[in-house]
Design a protein around this nucleic acid. Structure first.
Length: 883
DNA sequence: CGATATACGTA
DNA sequence: CGTACGTATATCGA
C-alpha cells in the first residue's frame, strides 16, 4: 500500500532481468556441485527480493517470454533476427527460476506468441484503470511508453540489475524531452538495433525529438515529410516504411487476453518448505533469510483451521486402550515417544479417533497382543520406534506403511527428513513443533496421539499418489527390511578394544617417524594434513610440475602423488603417502574404538551398534552411520588387521560372511540378455578370464594377468558409464588403446551396449529409471540443455537400475534370512550388510543350518537368466571369515 | 560454530 | 571425462 492509500501492483519482466543477471554475474561462482548454472536465477531473485522489500507491493506477477517466436516475428520476420540464440546455459535456468517463483507463490504469466512486455503492458493498463499504483520492472526500453501518473517504470541501469532507475512522466521528459507516450515515436525514427529495427539513417534522439516537437506527432511529421530539409530529410522520405513498421512493432499490446486480473495477483504467503527445497537444490544459502525478510516465512499464514482441528487425544485406562486398539478398523497410526532408547509415551490414531498413554507395564501388557498381531499399523520413521518397543519386550508386527520410507521411494533424490516435512508437503499444514531452543517453549509440540493422527493422514494421501510398482517395493521389500535392520542394529557387532588399541599405538608411532623423515627432506615442519601447506611444499618449494586443478589450487591426492613419484621422484612424496596411510588407518581405528559400547540407547556391551539409514541413497542401497561399518578397510594386508578386530561375540561360535560375486555384472547380463555374457556366467569359468578370451581372441587359459586386468576394468567401468578417456586413465594406457579395447568388447558383447543405450533413452522418455523390482529413480536432467548436467544424469541413469536391482536383491535375501533364522528358532543372527555381503553371527551348533539358509536365500532371492553365485566364509573374526 | 573443500575408506 | 555412500581434517567467514 502506498502513501496514496492505493494498492500497489508490481509486474516484472522475468526474462529480460534474468538475462541481464546472467551476463552480469560470473558463472563460476554460481553453479551447483553437479554443474547446474544458477547465476541468472540468483541475480534475478536477489534483485526481486530487494524490490519487493523496498516497494512493498500488495499485488505481484512475473511475466516470461515463451519463445523467440511471437506475433511480431509473424509481422516482420527480421524482428530480433540479429539476436544470437540465447545460450543453453541461460535457457536451462528459466524453468528453475519459475519453480522458485512458484515456491514463493508468485504468479508466473506466459502466453504463446506474446512477449513478456505485452503482458506487462496489459496488466499495467488494467491495473491503473482498476485503481492501482503500478510498478513495471523491465529491461526493455519499449516499456517507457507505459509510464503515466499511475504507472512507474523501474529500469535497470548500466551498473546492473540491482540498481533500478525510476521513470515517472517527469523523469521521461527530463531524459528524452518528450512525454512517455511519445517515446515509441522517437524509437521508431531512431530505430532499435537490439530488435533489428533500422531507423532513419543519421537520425538520433536529438533530431527525432526536434521533429516531433515541431510537428506535434509522428503522423503529422510523416504527412509533412516533404517539408524536411537537408540530407536527413531525404533519409526520412526514403525510410518512411521503416518508420511506420517500427512504430507498429514497438507499440505494446494493452489488451492481451489473460487468465487473471490485477486483483487476482494479491500477494500470497510463500510455501516455505518448497522454497527451502528448491534453494537447497540450487545451493542458495544466503538468499533464504532475505526471502523470509521480504516475503515472510509463510508460517503464520498457514491454514489455522487445520491446526485448530487437531483432535485431542483421549487417555483411556490401560485395559480400555487394549480394547480400543483391537476394535479399531483399518490402519492404526502409531507414534512412540522414545527417550534413552525406550518408549516413554505412546499415541494411536484410527481416523480422527485418537488415544494416548504414558508407557507403563500395564499399558505394555494391554497392547502387546495387538502390537504383535497382523493388524495394520502406520508409523512415521518406524525403525527407532520398533527398536524401542523391542527393548521393552514388544515385537511389533503388521507394519503396513511408513510415510518416511514412502516419501523416499517417491523422491529418493531429496527425501523429506521428518514427519513435519511430509505434513507440509502432502497436507499443506504445519505440524505443531515446540521450539527446541526454548526451555519453556511458547508453542506446544504435537502430542504423540496427534503425531500418530498426522502420520495416518499423510499415509492416506501418499497411498493415493504412489505408483503401484513403488508401493510394492515399499510393502514387499522395504518394510520387511526395516524389521531386519532393527534387529541388526540392536544386536551390534563385537569389536575387540585390545586389538584396536595396540594397532593404533603402532600406527601413531609410525606416522610420527615418517613425518620426521618427511620434514627432514624439506628442511621444515609443515602440517602434512593440510592440502594448502602441501601445495606450497610440492609446487613452490620443490617446484614439482603442477597437477590436476582443484577449486583452491592443485590436487595432492594419492593418484596425483603416485604420478609425480613416477615423473619426478622425490623421497618426500613417498613419505607423505606413507604418512597419509598410517594416519588414515589410525583415524578409522580411533573412531571405531570410540564407538564400542557408545550407543547411548544401549548399555555397554562391548559391541558397535551402527545405524542403517534406509533412506540414505538414491539407488536403493542402505547407508551406515555412527559409525559407518560399510567402509571398513580391506584392500591392504595391514588394513585387514582392523577387520580382525570384529569378532564373534560371547555365546556364539563363529562368524559367517556371505557375498554375491559380481552381482552387478550378472544383473547386466540379465537385463541386456547378452548371449555371450550369459554364457560366461553359466560356463563356470572365471568371468574376466572368459571375457578376456573373447575380447582378445585367445583360449581362456592364455589370458594373461594384464589382459584380465583390462577387461575387468572395462566390465566394471561399463556399469558406471565409463568413457574411453576414463578407461585409459585408469589403466594408464593410451586413449587409442582404450578405444580399441571398447570396440573389441562391444563387438563380442554387443547386446550390453544396446541395453545401456536403450535404457538411458527409455529413462529420457519416462523421466525415471526402474529396477527389476519396480524401484524408481527420477532423472529430470536427462533432457537438460546443460551438457555437463545431462551427461552426469546419463551416467547415473545407466547405473541406477543395475546398482538398484542389486540392492533390491540383497534386501530380499536379508529379510528372508532374518525371518527364516527366527522361524526356525535359531539363535544365529545377521549383524552387518555391506551392499553385497552379509556378516552373520552363528550360534553354537547352528553352522550347517545357517550356512544352508544364508547360501540358499541369497541364491534364490531373484530369478535371473544367470545364477546368483554366493561365496561363504567362516572364521572367528571378520578377516578370517572373509576368505 | 557452521559451511566448504579436500582426501579417502568401502561396494 | 566412473556409480553409490560417510567421515576426518583444515580452513574460512560469521
Amino acid at each position: 500500500m502506498t502513501d496514496s492509500g492505493k494498492p500497489t501492483l508490481l509486474v516484472v519482466d522475468g526474462h529480460s532481468l534474468a538475462y541481464r543477471a546472467f551476463f552480469a554475474l560470473p558463472v563460476d561462482n554460481f553453479s551447483t556441485k553437479d554443474g547446474q548454472h544458477t547465476n541468472g536465477i540468483y541475480g534475478f531473485l536477489s534483485m526481486f527480493v530487494n524490490l519487493v522489500k523496498a516497494e512493498q507491493p500488495t499485488h505481484l506477477a512475473v511475466a516470461f517470454d515463451t519463445s523467440r517466436h511471437s506475433f511480431r516475428t509473424d509481422q516482420y520476420a527480421e524482428y530480433k533476427a540479429n539476436r544470437s540464440e540465447s545460450p543453453a546455459e541461460f535457457k536451462g535456468q528459466i524453468p528453475l527460476l519459475q519453480e522458485c517463483l512458484a515456491a514463493l507463490n508468485v504468479t508466473v504469466l506466459t502466453k504463446e506468441g506474446i512477449e513478456a512486455d505485452d503482458i506487462l503492458a496489459t496488466l499495467a493498463t488494467r491495473g491503473a484503470a482498476d485503481g492501482f499504483d503500478v510498478l513495471v520492472c523491465s529491461g526493455d526500453r519499449d516499456t517507457i511508453q507505459l509510464v503515466t501518473d499511475d504507472v512507474t517504470l523501474l529500469y535497470p541501469s548500466v551498473q546492473g540489475v540491482s540498481q533500478l532507475k525510476r521513470y515517472t512522466p517527469d523523469a521521461v521528459v527530463e531524459k528524452y524531452g518528450l512525454p512517455p507516450a511519445n517515446y515509441p515515436d522517437i524509437a521508431a525514427l531512431v530505430g532499435e538495433t537490439s530488435d533489428n529495427l533500422p531507423g532513419v539513417p543519421k537520425v538520433g534522439e536529438k533530431t527525432a525529438v526536434k521533429w516531433l516537437t515541431q510537428w506535434g506527432s509522428l503522423e503529422n511529421l510523416i504527412a509533412n515529410a516533404d517539408k524536411i530539409t537537408g540530407v536527413v530529410g531525404g533519409n526520412l522520405r526514403d525510410h518512411l516504411d521503416d518508420v511506420t513498421r517500427n512504430r507498429s512493432l514497438n507499440a505494446l499490446l494493452r489488451d492481451v487476453e489473460l487468465e487473471v486480473t490485477p486483483a487476482d495477483l494479491a500477494l500470497r504467503p510463500i510455501d516455505a518448505q518448497a522454497v527451502r527445497d528448491i534453494f537447497a537444490r540450487l545451493e542458495f544459502r544466503t538468499l533464504l533469510p532475505r526471502v523470509f525478510d521480504s516475503f515472510g516465512t509463510g508460517d503464520d499464514e498457514l491454514p489455522a483451521a487445520a491446526v485448530v482441528a487437531i483432535p485431542t487425544a483421549a487417555t483411556p485406562a490401560a485395559d480400555a486402550l487394549g480394547a480400543w486398539a483391537t476394535d479399531a478398523e483399518g490402519d492404526v497410526a502409531v507414534s512412540v515417544v522414545v527417550a534413552g532408547g525406550l518408549p516413554t509415551r505412546i499415541g494411536l490414531a484410527a481416523g480422527d479417533d485418537v488415544v494416548e498413554a504414558d508407557w507403563s507395564p500395564e499399558v505394555a501388557a494391554a497392547l502387546t497382543a495387538w502390537f504383535e498381531s497382523d493388524a495394520p499399523k502406520v508409523i512415521a520413521d518406524a525403525k527407532p520406534q520398533v527398536k524401542a518397543l523391542r527393548r521393552a519386550g514388544v515385537r511389533l508386527r503388521g507394519l503396513a506403511f511408513d510415510p518416511l520410507l514412502a516419501g523416499w521411494l517417491e523422491r529418493p533424490s531429496f527425501p523429506d527428513k521428518s514427519l513435519a516435512d511430509l505434513v507440509q508437503r502432502h497436507l499443506d499444514e504445519k505440524l505443531p513443533e515446540a521450539d527446541p531452543t526454548q526451555l519453556v517453549p511458547e508453542t506446544e509440540g504435537a502430542t504423540p496421539g496427534q503425531l500418530a493422527w498426522f502420520a495416518g493422514r499423510v499415509a492416506a494421501v501418499q497411498r493415493d499418489e504412489i505408483a503401484p510398482s513403488v508401493a510394492s517395493v515399499l510393502t514387499d521389500i522395504e518394510l520387511p527390511t526395516l524389521d531386519a535392520l532393527a534387529d541388526m542394529e540392536l544386536a551390534g557387532v563385537a569389536v575387540s578394544h585390545e586389538k584396536l588399541s595396540g594397532f593404533s599405538a603402532e600406527l601413531l608411532a609410525r606416522a610420527d617417524g615418517v613425518a620426521r623423515l618427511a620434514f627432514a627432506e624439506i628442511g621444515r615442519e609443515v602440517n602434512l594434513g593440510s592440502p594448502k601447506q602441501l601445495q606450497e611444499v610440492l609446487f613452490d618449494q620443490l617446484a614439482l610440475p603442477k597437477t590436476r586443478k582443484t577449486k583452491t589450487g592443485y590436487s595432492t591426492d594419492a593418484a596425483v602423488l603416485a604420478d609425480l613419484q613416477e615423473s619426478n621422484p622425490h623421497p618426500f612424496l613417498d613419505l607423505l603417502l606413507q604418512h597419509r596411510e598410517a594416519t588414515k588407518l589410525r583415524q578409522i581405528i580411533e573412531s571405531l574404538d570410540a564407538a564400542i559400547g557408545n550407543d547411548r540407547t544401549t548399555p555397554d556391551d562391548g559391541r558397535i551398534h551402527t545405524t542403517y539409514v534406509q533412506t540414505g541413497s538414491q539407488t536403493g542401497r542402505l547407508s551406515s552411520t555412527d559409525p559407518n561399518l560399510q567402509n571398513i578397510p580391506i584392500r591392504t594386508e595391514e588394513s585387514r588387521r582392523i577387520r580382525s578386530a570384529f569378532e564373534v561375540g560371547a555365546g556364539y561360535e563363529t562368524l559367517l560372511t556371505a557375498d554375491y560375486s559380481q552381482i552387478e555384472m550378472r544383473i547386466m547380463a540379465h537385463l541386456s540378455g547378452d548371449p555371450g555374457l550369459i554364457e560366461a556366467f553359466n560356463s563356470g569359468e572365471d568371468l574376466h578370464r572368459f571375457v578376456g578370451a573373447r575380447v582378445f581372441g585367445v583360449e581362456p587359459a592364455e589370458v594373461t594377468p594384464a589382459m584380465r586386468t583390462k577387461v575387468k576394468a572395462m566390465s566394471y567401468g561399463l556399469v558406471y558409464g565409463l568413457s574411453a578417456f576414463g578407461l585409459s586413465k585408469q589403466l594408464r594406457i593410451e586413449q587409442s588403446e582404450a578405444r580399441q579395447l571398447m570396440t573389441e568388447y562391444f563387438a563380442r558383447f554387443g547386446a550390453v551396449r544396446d541395453y545401456l543405450r536403450s535404457s538411458v533413452e527409455q529413462a529420457r522418455v519416462d523421466g525415471y529409471t526402474e529396477t527389476i523390482f519396480g524401484r524408481r529413480r527420477p532423472f529430470p536432467d536427462l533432457t537438460s540443455m546443460n551438457r555437463v548436467l545431462r551427461e552426469n544424469a546419463e551416467r547415473a541413469a545407466l547405473n541406477a537400475p543395475i546398482q538398484g536391482s542389486a540392492a533390491d536383491i540383497m534386501k530380499i535375501a536379508l529379510f528372508r534370512i532374518h525371518d527364516q533364522l527366527r522361524t526356525e528358532g535359531l539363535a544365529s543372527r545377521v549383524l552387518l550388510q555391506i551392499h553385497d555381503e552379509l556378516v552373520v553371527e552363528v550360534a553354537t551348533g547352528e553352522w550347517d543350518a545357517v550356512e544352508r539358509i544364508v547360501h540358499d536365500r541369497m541364491g534364490d532371492a531373484a530369478e535371473l537368466s544367470v545364477p546368483l553365485d554366493v561365496q561363504v566364509g567362516r572364521g572367528a573374526d571378520w578377516d578370517e571369515a572373509g576368505h
